[in-house]
Amino acid sequence: MRLIRPMLFGLAALLTAFAAAAVQPDEMLKDPAQESRARALSAEIRCLVCQNQSIDDSDASLARDLRLLVRDQISQGRSDGEIRDFLVERYGAFVLLDPPFRGSTLVLWLGPAIVLLAGAAGLAIYFRSRRRSAADAVALSDDERARLERLLDDRDRRA
């Protein structure tokens, strides 16, 4: 039974996952500025049934309901932030494709910068330590260098 449940449940979602109809002309708002706001906002709202599309791209019926809701609230004069909050209150933060910046997403948003800085620091240490060991090293004479070259090439050829 445990296996059947996700299967049955997933069926409807799967069938509609790819179809491309998305926004229909009859849903659109008259005011072009409001409509383009609605489009931009819906591109950031996740279609919950298809799970990896925005409601703007999805043909699922629930996505249509949410598109209409977004447009309804826009024409009532609500701000984008208010509409987002409205949806998060009901569906959870999962509904936003653009995760909000807060405590629980700190690592997500700062992670790339931390990796970059750690890498850059690692590089700086690498260059400094190599310079120090280079200062310790005794330079080879031209003659020695040529001999070394020959030896290395020989080894490579034999290998």
């Binding site: 959870g92 933060a93 494709l97 997500l108």
Partner: peptide, 13 residues
């Protein structure tokens, strides 16, 4: 809890 990480995140980072 559950969050989504969608295209806006990647565009920003």
């Amino acid at each position: 809890g559950k969050v989504s990480v969608g295209p806006p995140y990647y565009n920003a980072t």
